[in-house]
């Protein structure tokens, strides 16, 4: 069975083109980052991309427009906004969820809203190597579609090696959760991708995809294709 490949892009004017290129390269799902000024879960690459996006005026309304335009280009691809609680607090929690759905969003990820908080807000939940079995079960019960396995104790960004914590996390989570498990944080090379998908049902690639996207849609497509080729 083919493994899932999720690619993260920071919302911007060229997101529809980049998302199209990512899908051309073999991505199944595209995450669209709605930038926040103080992104606690993110390492330097995504943090700097958020700073640039904010400087370009990418606020919630503009991000929703980018989502809608990306949806027009890619009618069949799951598109998932990823952001932080502060944006939802300001926009209105329910209104945000409604407008994401109306703009073509398939679910959402809120990086600083752990399982158990606001359970009525449907979203992809995250579990980490530090999560207890009880929390993994809770996240599995609340998650929307698939479960995001944070492979490392740390922030987003490329690492030299795939996290040694992943096998144990996958094994524990399989026992507790039926949903598909996608591994992310620190996955940046075909070798990481292959190793991670030997364990998990899919992977999420963020910082490395953003770096490839800086060189344009073709570079992103080639990078995504290099991952797709091995999973």
């Amino acid at each position: 069975m083919s493994k899932a490949l999720v690619v993260y892009l920071m919302a911007g004017p060229d997101t529809p083109d980049l998302a199209h290129a990512a899908v051309d390269g073999g991505a199944d799902t595209v995450e669209i980052g709605f930038p926040f000024s103080d992104p606690l879960a993110d390492g330097p690459v995504i943090r700097r991309a958020a700073e640039r996006a904010l400087a370009q005026g990418m606020r919630t309304r503009q991000c929703l427009d980018v989502l809608a335009r990306t949806r027009e280009r890619l009618p069949g691809t799951p598109l998932i906004p990823m952001t932080y609680s502060s944006l939802l607090e300001a926009y209105g929690w329910e209104r945000f969820a409604e407008d994401v759905a109306a703009s073509g969003g398939s679910s959402m990820i809120v990086a600083d809203l752990p399982a158990g908080e606001r359970p009525s807000l449907r979203r992809v939940q995250l579990v980490a190597p530090t999560s207890t079995d009880e929390r993994i079960a809770l996240a599995g019960a609340e998650t929307d579609g698939w479960l995001y396995l944070v492979t490392i104790a740390g922030t987003t960004g490329a690492r030299g090696e795939l996290s040694p914590a992943l096998p144990g996390l996958v094994e524990r989570t399989r026992r507790l959760v039926d949903a598909p498990l996608y591994a992310g944080f620190g996955i940046s090379t075909p070798a990481h991708a292959r190793a991670a998908t030997e364990l998990a049902d899919g992977i999420v690639v963020g910082s490395a995809a953003l770096e490839a996207a800086e060189d344009g849609p073709e570079a992103l497509r080639d990078f995504v294709a290099s991952l797709r080729a091995v999973i």
């Binding site: 606690l40 752990p114 158990g116 908080e117 579990v127 980490a128 530090t130 944070v150």
Partner: peptide, 25 residues
């Protein structure tokens, strides 16, 4: 505990999942 219960509507634990077990401890 939910996000909205600590000091009226304020407080809570708006952090990545990785930290939740440490905050529980």
């Amino acid at each position: 505990m939910t996000a909205a219960t600590e000091f009226g509507a304020y407080g809570g634990r708006y952090v990545p999942e990785t930290l939740i077990p440490a905050l529980d401890d």
